[in-house]
């Protein structure tokens, strides 16, 4: 029997869905070709929002898919290693602490979040390295950092004024509306590089399923691979949180469901997670667009849609 190549059909279907969703979003602007105001809205509001959704969705889902393998934990997501918590804390300091004048928030907030994400990732990495960089050490260090950041954020809430805390709450639940082209240019560049780097390692990730020793026997350096993937994921998540706030559940949900349906081959799961993550975020944007005027926080929608699907998949898995 010949060695079966990985199925590419799911990848094409996911791409088709993304194109379809983009089409729907464009068609919502019915006067796009004739009306100048409509064009202005599309180019300056809708388009950056769609691009943010695509970038953030693929970054979160793809990095989670990789994190689950390197941390040997099918329930890992960027939250579990505490990357997003550092970013959230910095957002809190900027929004509630009023560190920056409100005119510079549009670029100051993403920058602060990115700094926070990098700082917390660096701290987690150093802590885990002192604990010998085992899988559980990374997770434990992440939990420690998250707890400290969450506590600091809670203190900020107590001292913040009502409007600021409300702004922060909304920001923490995620939104695609903050992005502007200059920020997208930088963030998009980093995310695309990260996605490329993860794709490059997707085949090697397959050798980690049976633990480090079995990977080593295949001639792969598991410690190095883990380090490289952790750094890439920290960058991807850091950038995502910076431009769209903290988005719950997508990271855990997408790769977990895909593994249940299509198996564990990372050559398929890593790119497919990216595409499905992007498609899911487009669905959220579309729902928000259809609800004309009400801008629901993303985490609210991801949890509302994703939660029931997750339960359904769990039951399907039982019957497999």
């Amino acid at each position: 029997m010949p060695v079966p190549s990985i199925q590419s059909t799911p990848l094409f279907i996911a791409i088709a869905v993304i194109v379809g969703l983009l089409g729907i979003n464009v068609s919502l602007h019915s006067q796009l070709l004739t009306d100048a105001v409509e064009q202005h809205i599309f180019i300056n509001l809708s388009l950056p929002m769609l691009m943010t959704a695509l970038l953030v969705g693929s970054a979160l889902a793809m990095s989670s898919a990789a994190l689950q393998v390197v941390l040997n934990n099918p329930l890992a997501d960027p939250g579990i290693i505490g990357i997003s918590s550092g970013a959230s804390l910095c957002a809190g300091i900027v929004i509630i602490g009023g560190v920056l004048p409100s005119s510079s928030l549009i670029w100051g907030l993403p920058l602060a979040c990115f700094t926070g994400a990098l700082l917390s990732s660096g701290l987690i990495y150093l802590l885990a390295k002192r604990l010998a960089l085992t899988h559980s050490a990374v997770i434990l260090a992440g939990i420690a950092i998250s707890t400290v950041c969450a506590a600091a954020l809670a203190w900020l809430y107590i001292f913040g004024d009502a409007q600021a805390t409300r702004n922060l709450t909304f920001w923490l639940m995620g939104s695609f509306q903050h992005a502007s082209y200059p920020i997208l240019a930088v963030a998009g560049g980093i995310i695309l590089l990260g996605i490329g780097a993860l794709s490059y390692h997707r085949s090697a990730l397959n050798s980690l399923y049976l633990g480090d020793i079995n990977a080593q026997l295949l001639g792969i350096d598991p410690q190095r691979l883990t380090r490289v993937v952790l750094v890439i994921c920290a960058l991807l998540v850091g950038v995502s949180v910076s431009i769209a706030g903290s988005i719950a559940f997508v990271g855990l949900l997408v790769p977990h469901i895909l593994r249940r349906i299509f198996g564990s081959d990372n050559r398929l799961i890593i790119p497919l997670s990216g595409l499905v993550g992007a498609a899911l975020m487009l669905v959220i944007v579309t729902v928000n667009q259809l609800l004309n005027g009400v801008d629901l926080p993303i985490s609210l929608l991801t949890a509302s849609i994703g939660g029931p699907i997750f339960v359904w998949v769990l039951f399907q898995g039982q019957q497999r």
């Binding site: 393998v69 934990n73 399923y209 079995n214 593994r259 564990s264």
Partner: peptide, 16 residues
């Protein structure tokens, strides 16, 4: 040689 992920025998052979 345990894995916390649900691998099939075919996958194990393909990956290793």
């Amino acid at each position: 040689n345990d894995s916390v992920f649900g691998l099939t025998v075919a996958e194990l052979f393909r990956f290793y």
